[in-house]
Amino acid sequence: MAYTEEWVTERARNAYEHGRASFDVRPERTALLVIDMQDEFLRPGWSPYWVPAATRMAPRLRRLAEVCRAASVPVIWTIFDDTHLGLDRPHALRFLPHADGDWRRPGPAEVWAPAGRRPDEIVIRKPSYGAFYDTPLDTVLRNLDRDTVIVTGTLTNYCCGTTARQAYERGYKVVFGSDVTAADDESRQEPELAVLRKGFALVLTAEEITHRLTAAAPAADNEDCSGRDR
């Protein structure tokens, strides 16, 4: 067969727009990652880094977190923070445009209260975009015997997308929430989803994630957390 330019272009386009990863989402092997749903990104008008789309989608994400808790899926939160006096951040960050500005966080970085974090849920403070960079996240997930992560939060095309790629590179099955992530420029949302859909993740809506978790829940009742039959 001769592969024409039109054929390969259409094949790529279909994968970007309609591709679906083929793995199952098993609650007993899954964790929910809630990326950077913190005050400076969610609290309206509080900082120049406010992401209005993240504030609007927060109730939907909160409902998904409740679904996950009911299915015994751990909920793990991250915060983009000033850890180790900033000396653990990639050196080049200071040269990038979004590092400009005089605004400084007036106090400790915290999860935005309306996002609904529970006191017994892990918070990982990270120094860069991806949640696996210089953090214990990989160790935490492996100790929980989880091989699948659901990535939610903000920003879609920075911290969420980078976390999804890092998880993929570490062998995790990645589910990416298409309507429980948000970008500061909403026109950037779908282009990032397209790349993730083609090469890194199973991109699903919160409703689709809920369906997969609840449909799989009865099977999980017959297994322990390592996936073995009781």
Rank of each mutant, 00 (worst) to 15 (best):
Y49W: 08
R26V: 15
L87P: 00
D39Q: 05
N143H: 12
A70Q: 14
I122D: 07
M57G: 09
A31M: 07
L64E: 02
A54D: 07
R105F: 04
V123G: 10
R125L: 04
L141P: 08
F41S: 00
P106N: 02
T135V: 09
T78P: 01
P106W: 00
A115G: 01
T148Q: 04
R125S: 12
T148C: 04
T78K: 03
L96G: 00
W46I: 04
R117E: 06
L141F: 06
R105M: 04
Y49M: 11
R43L: 13
A113V: 11
P90S: 08
G107M: 07
S128E: 14
R29L: 07
A99G: 02
T30V: 05
H84K: 10
A71W: 02
A109R: 02
E121S: 02
D134H: 14
A54R: 10
S47V: 07
R89S: 11
E28W: 15
G101S: 02
K126I: 01
A99N: 12
L42D: 00
D82H: 12
A92N: 06
G116R: 14
G130K: 14
R89P: 00
V149C: 10
W50M: 11
D147P: 02
C68S: 08
V51K: 07
L61P: 03
K126W: 00
P106A: 02
P90L: 12
V75P: 04
H91P: 07
T78R: 02
V51Y: 07
A58V: 01
E28Y: 15
T83W: 00
P48A: 05
R105L: 13
L144C: 01
P59N: 11
G86R: 03
R89E: 10
H91E: 13
H84F: 09
G116W: 13
R104E: 15
W77G: 01
P127Q: 09
L85W: 15
E121A: 01
R62L: 10
D138N: 07
M37K: 05
P114W: 03
L96M: 13
G116H: 11
D100L: 15
L141W: 04
R146K: 09
C68M: 08
F95C: 01
D39V: 00
T55K: 09
A54E: 03
I35N: 01
W112M: 04
D147K: 08
R117K: 14
D39W: 07
A31V: 04
D120T: 06
D36H: 05
A58D: 03
F80K: 00
L93C: 08
L33F: 08
T139I: 09
T139L: 11
R56M: 14
S72C: 14
P106H: 05
D138Q: 04
L144Q: 06
R29G: 08
V67I: 13
I124F: 06
A54W: 13
R104F: 11
Y129D: 01
A131D: 08
E66I: 08
P48Y: 07
D36E: 09
D81I: 01
P97V: 08
R63W: 10
D81F: 00
L64F: 10
